[in-house]
Design a protein around this nucleic acid. Structure first.
Lengths: 226, 226
DNA sequence: ACCTGAACACCGTTCAAGT
DNA sequence: ACCTGAACACCGTTCAAGT
């Protein structure tokens, strides 16, 4: 026989109380299922079986909520790479970790470029900075290299996340890119855009992203030598 | 004596007819004056002395309109650098031209990272590609270098555009960044974020951006040598 | 054909009222 | 203290009706 002490109304209320953590978790689920456009206060309220207003008791704005959800995704990535010993391997691991996280959570890609001082971006800066320092950089060179790598990672993944990656159907993707290249023929007397577009059809985004990281690391290595 | 031939109602109508060009120009003015948040169909209608619906006769969506306005800004930049002969100088000029354009039109910075296949991004790709080809690159190396440089330029300028640059008041900017660094002390056992934040207070964004471009160019130079 | 402006289906946020 | 849900002040887009 179960006694209900002081909570007679339990049946009509949710079992567990609302909390910032539960709200962020629900937001993450909605974002993963439907992208940035799917996250609304109303949808969040439905998903948590509560009113719209209740959410504002635990979170100050939708923006802060997306920042928190983004940081939760990035946190897992940075936590997974600190163990490695070789700084260059660690930096490649960090970059690819972010790439893969954005592949799994595309909304994170555009979100990271929206607000440069959000928690997740600070976290990325911190991780990059530590590995570059382990590589022997310090002072201004470290600051320059860190900002360059962060800029590249955030920019490249944003491009990738918002791109036609989602067009899994090869035929649709091909047609889409062909029509784009067509539209740009006029401004493309030497065919450079056309070539880039045709390359888009076949290339491996992840490999190209890694090539960019390596280009950067080669730059760091040869600048440090001066 | 002026004759009005067939236009008796002229006085009550706008002097010049609505057109896509005039709408894009009005959008540019609103974006420059108030940022991305200020551009709404209603505001555009007011500014052009017309109803909301009339705009949709010349433009298919607000998104397309912002794409067009962004391309108008970027077009001026790419048109200004093609004359140069040294490809590395031209690439630095292109990068700094985009940086300065975003300094003057901050809304462009975040807009460029939102949609990777918009006209302005294609234009930037094309310009980068041409200069890299002039540098002697071709095929996959050209594609990799172009995507890396484009990623860096778009990412770094987006970070910069959305950053605390607008806090012209040095004191406010300093306080803001100090409080941010404070908030991140916990996750910053080795002080790397704190150092980065303190550097943010004093550094020259443009110079740091240029350092990033040079890092990539050094990488390209030393990769090509292999 | 071009334009008008009301109507539609949404937003994020606030707040008096309930428990 | 925590939660509710109506109210507020917005959006972008559509469309019947006018000229």
């Amino acid at each position: 026989m179960v006694t209900m002490s002081s909570q007679e109304t339990r049946r009509t209320r949710r079992v567990d109380a609302l909390s910032r953590d539960r709200i962020v978790a629900a937001a993450l689920e909605i974002l993963d299922a439907g992208g940035a456009g799917a996250l609304t206060v109303r949808e969040l309220g439905n998903s948590l079986s509560t009113g719209r207003g209740a959410i504002y008791h635990h979170v100050s704005s939708m923006e802060e909520l997306v920042d928190a959800a983004t940081d939760r995704v990035i946190e897992r990535v940075t936590a997974g790479v600190t163990a490695d010993d070789d700084p260059e391997v660690a930096l490649r691991g960090l970059a690819l970790g972010i790439f893969d996280a954005i592949d799994a959570h595309p909304w994170v890609g555009t979100q990271l470029s929206r607000q440069p001082l959000q928690p997740a971006v600070f976290r990325i800066w911190g991780s990059i900075g530590r590995h570059l320092r382990a590589l022997g950089l310090d002072g201004q060179p470290l600051s320059d290299a860190g900002s360059a790598l962060a800029g590249f990672i955030l920019g490249a993944t944003a491009q990738y996340a918002a791109g036609p990656r989602h067009l899994r159907d090869d035929e649709a993707r091909r047609e889409y890119l062909d029509s784009l290249a067509e539209a740009w023929m006029d401004h493309d007397s030497d065919g450079i855009v056309r070539e880039a577009a045709s390359r888009l059809r076949t290339h491996d985004d992840r490999e190209q992203f890694l090539a960019g990281v390596n280009l950067f690391l080669t730059g760091v290595r040869n600048t440090a030598r001066d």
